[in-house]
């Protein structure tokens, strides 16, 4: 069986990639995708820990994380559409006003 630390390292690398994407990219859609990468990395951690702890709680949490991620994607994309209608741009640096 593959040791637990291997899964944790893969998940840490995936999370770091997602975080780097959030900071480096200038496209709202790619930023949302990076957030999905980070959520998925955390899911992998939960499932790995749950498997090695020998119960299903890790999988249950992952289940809820996936549900929340679905809700987050729906609201996030609706926000992106609303922002794009106003500014014709997906660059987050153009959205500096709270109200216009």
């Amino acid at each position: 069986m593959v040791p637990l630390s291997h899964y944790l390292i893969v998940s840490a690398v995936l999370f770091a990639l997602g975080a780097a994407g959030v900071f480096l990219r200038r496209n709202l859609i790619t930023i949302l995708l990076s957030i999905e990468i980070m959520l998925n990395a955390v899911n992998l951690t939960f499932v790995a820990f749950g498997r090695f702890a020998g119960d299903v709680d890790g999988q249950i949490i992952t289940f809820f994380v996936m549900t929340v991620a679905a809700a987050e994607a729906a609201v996030g994309l609706a926000l992106v559409i609303a922002l794009f209608r106003h500014r014709e741009s997906l660059n987050p640096d153009t959205f500096t006003n709270l109200k216009w």
């Binding site: 859609i29 998925n40 994607a73 794009f84 741009s89 997906l90």
Partner: peptide
């Protein structure tokens, strides 16, 4: 759920917005 539904939602938005190339 993820690859089948959420990613299709993303694809719809990408195509709908006809997103410009990133600066």
């Amino acid at each position: 759920v993820y690859a089948g539904a959420i990613m299709v939602l993303f694809l719809f938005v990408v195509m709908l917005l006809n997103a410009p190339q990133e600066d």
